[in-house]
């Protein structure tokens, strides 16, 4: 069976979001049009979103669509976790090691990056951001955190 994968997936994503918001709204007080509860407006929007999702997904069945194209998997694997790594290590390791690791991780998203270049880049960025954000703008970051035995 042929199917326009891009549109089918797209519709499915919207339906999934609609379902999440819709089900949650049902668990809340809906109220009346006069005094709307917290669930009223989101339930209405969620219903529209599901209908729109269906309107995208259903026509996609039995049609040949344009291919989605290649995904930059390597990019996603290294880029998306970079802010997460920063978040996880900031309190424990402190600003300096944390930003160094986050930059280093993001560097490997490109196949063109070589390890020495990445290390130099991360080190320069660490020095620069420490100077600008911690000393220059005075943001309340600890340079090194408790995981490194700093108090």
């Amino acid at each position: 069976m042929v199917i326009d994968r891009a549109n089918a997936l797209c519709g499915a994503i919207f339906i999934a979001f609609g379902a999440y918001f819709g089900l949650n709204s049902l668990g809340m007080e809906l109220g009346t049009p006069f005094r709307m509860g917290p669930g009223f407006f989101p339930l209405f929007l969620a219903a529209i979103l599901i209908v729109l999702g269906l309107a995208i997904a259903i026509p996609a069945i039995r049609v040949e669509g344009e291919p989605i194209g290649s995904l930059p998997l390597r990019g996603m694997v290294f880029i998306l976790p970079s802010p997460v790594l920063f978040a996880l290590t900031l309190k424990g390791l402190g600003f300096v090691p944390s930003i160094f690791l986050a930059t280093l991780l993001a560097s490997f998203a490109s196949t063109k990056m070589r390890i020495p270049t990445a290390l130099i880049l991360a080190a320069l960025m660490t020095a620069f951001t420490t100077a600008v954000f911690v000393y220059g703008l005075g943001l309340p970051f600890r340079l090194f955190g408790p995981w490194l035995g700093q108090r």
Binding site: I79, S82, A102, T103, A106, L121, M125, T129
Partner: peptide, 9 residues
């Protein structure tokens, strides 16, 4: 990588 670092901070 520079952009990502700035964005995170």
């Amino acid at each position: 990588p520079i952009i990502i670092a700035f964005c995170s901070i």
